[in-house]
Design a binder for these strands. Structure first.
Lengths: 341, 341
DNA sequence: CGTTAGCACTCACCGCAATAGAGTGCTAAC
DNA sequence: GTTAGCACTCTATTGCGGTGAGTGCTAACG
């Protein structure tokens, strides 16, 4: 257990380091009025905090820097509520004031605003399709040999895919098939649609429609693949302005990861409630051990409907990011409830 | 007019500089067997080429570097056809072998492959909506107070938007309106749809349907905005590995531009045929005067259906990029013709 | 006993001069 | 016309004190 003075000192160091990105010396701390002790006293406490593993020294004659453990303690015990700037509130309000759009777009937009306000990189992870159900299916002929298959989910999400139409398919047949499919498949979870298509529906179709195999094959191909959550990044270039990434090589490892959808998905905990903070090596992917990730997931009836995350250096402004994310996630959750409840 | 020897020397310098990114001295050129002269002779020629503005010297005692004019001459007169690697051909073939998808996706995918093969950044500019026409319109109710409006264009492109449904709207009415709209609006260029909606159609609708104002207002909002070409980037991180961008500040100016859709669109010439090469300051945006952009646009019956561009440092491998782009654009054009002709 | 002043010590960083090396331009000879 | 030779230029690298921020330790203070 830390003494009150130790906590004040640790707080001061973390705050200053977040702000200035340079090792903090005893003298600068002693100038603050919350910890009005002489540099010597502060030095003693700093030495203790270092023994506890909460601080680190880049080299003997430098000031102190928070360790990962130090950040963790800060986030868990010392962090102070962030007062959101009036202008920032305006910007966030705008997002919700704009004309209604689909959920995924709002999620992406929210992430974009977040990256803008924090100057970090934000990640939006779209809804996991396998938790959603089929709302509507349609097939729009484009010309003689191609058509667009459109799948609308209960979340208002729309997937579409171009498919080629086999020769000799009758338009009337297509219409009948589409109607039948809507009758039979609506309400089903997306990942079950395909199985159902093959088992029950196909037989029944055969009774009504000629050449049904071809149409079904066509549909099946339109359902296959492509139903994985979408990753949208905003403000990746913000990373460039972080002094810890003035070295291009480090930048490269981090930004490299962000282009790999799979790795990005690994970063987010499967099931989680509230705001998650992963500091440095607490993250699942080694390449971002120099970064921290703060995220929040949205769920409705236990189903994951997307995640927003903010990625920055471990020296990130935890208070601000958590504050903003908390504020926005509240609004987003009510929006979600209002739309789909 | 350059002498044959001058052309050989210029070619050698450009090729070597593209490869090694370091000023080229007379000695290393004289080792090549195509230009088997002594360093002294080469130096004389180099001095002449510099006077012509085709070469530059970073400083007195350094080797030569191609100037922008030099690159231009190289591209126009000296470039040699690129022989595409067998493996690369495989990768490109895969793109076209995969199941049929919509055009925009193919375009993006092609750009992604291009960035992968060249190690530069690629830009895909989606079809310009105002050249496309409405193919199909639909409105899928999601729950009591919201619905998804879906617009399918003649290109198979799908736009969709969540809209809120005013209270007291009858589902039957909606259906009737949708049918009427499809009858009246199909085939119209997208940018005219809205005007037509307000003028003719609205009156006619009023005769059939109660509360039509609300529905029309709803539709109008679903058409507004969002119909601008989409910019998709791939391999932006490839920029990091270019030695000319080891300085983070330069990187920042270039990558900054790429996040601004408007500026990116400015980069591409309005009407163009074949492969376009813009070297350094030939580009429309000052921030990328250090870069070259090689692009090709796809058109069908004179309508722009998208553009692919490769962005790299002026010291980029013109031969390779032009070669690959040429190869891919051929395949893409035939694909386009086959789908939509 | 906690706190603080004083002091010697450490180490990154800066500026500077010396050095090495790559490449040039020029001249004279082939 | 071509080439060898040479003086010259300029960058990049290395080495080396000087500077200053910051520390740890000790002794003195209240």
């Amino acid at each position: 257990m830390l003494s009150d003075r130790q906590r004040r000192i640790l707080t001061a160091i973390v705050d200053d380091y977040i702000r200035y990105a340079e090792p903090i010396g005893s003298r600068s701390i002693s100038k603050r009025k919350e910890v009005a002790f002489s540099p010597a006293t502060i030095r003693n406490e700093m030495a203790d905090l270092e023994e506890l593993g909460l601080l680190e020294q880049p080299h003997t004659s430098a000031g102190r820097v928070p360790s990962n453990k130090g950040y963790r303690y800060y986030v868990d015990h010392l962090i102070q509520p962030y007062e959101i700037d009036e202008q920032d509130i305006q910007k966030i309000r705008q997002l919700f004031a704009e004309r209604v759009r689909h959920w995924e777009e709002v999620l992406n937009e929210a992430a974009a605003i977040l990256s803008q306000l924090t100057n970090y990189t934000s990640i939006a992870l779209g809804p996991e399709i396998f938790t959603t159900t089929l709302k509507h299916f349609d097939l729009v002929p484009i010309n003689d040999d191609s058509a667009v298959a459109i799948i609308v989910t209960n979340m208002g999400h729309v997937e579409h895919r171009n498919i080629s139409v086999p020769h000799g398919v009758d338009l009337g047949d297509v219409r009948r098939v589409v109607n039948l499919l809507n009758a039979k498949l609506t309400g089903l979870p997306l990942h079950q649609v395909r199985a159902r298509l093959n088992s029950e529906v196909q037989k029944e179709l055969g009774m009504y429609v000629d050449r049904c195999e071809k149409i079904v094959a066509m549909l099946e191909s339109s359902l296959s693949g492509g139903i994985e959550p979408k990753v949208t990044l905003s403000g990746t270039k913000n990373m460039l302005s972080q002094p810890e990434f003035k070295d291009v090589a480090k930048l490269q490892t981090v930004l490299g990861i962000l282009e790999e959808t799979k790795k990005v998905m690994q970063l987010f905990p499967a099931q989680s409630e509230g705001i998650q903070v992963r500091i440095g090596p607490e993250n699942a992917v080694e390449e971002i051990y120099q970064c921290s990730l703060i995220s929040v997931s949205f769920t409705l009836d236990g189903e994951s409907l997307g995640t927003i995350g903010v990625l920055g250096p471990t020296r990130m402004d935890y208070s601000k990011v958590i504050g903003l994310l908390d504020y926005m996630s509240g609004d987003l959750a009510t929006l979600l409830a209002r739309w789909y409840k």
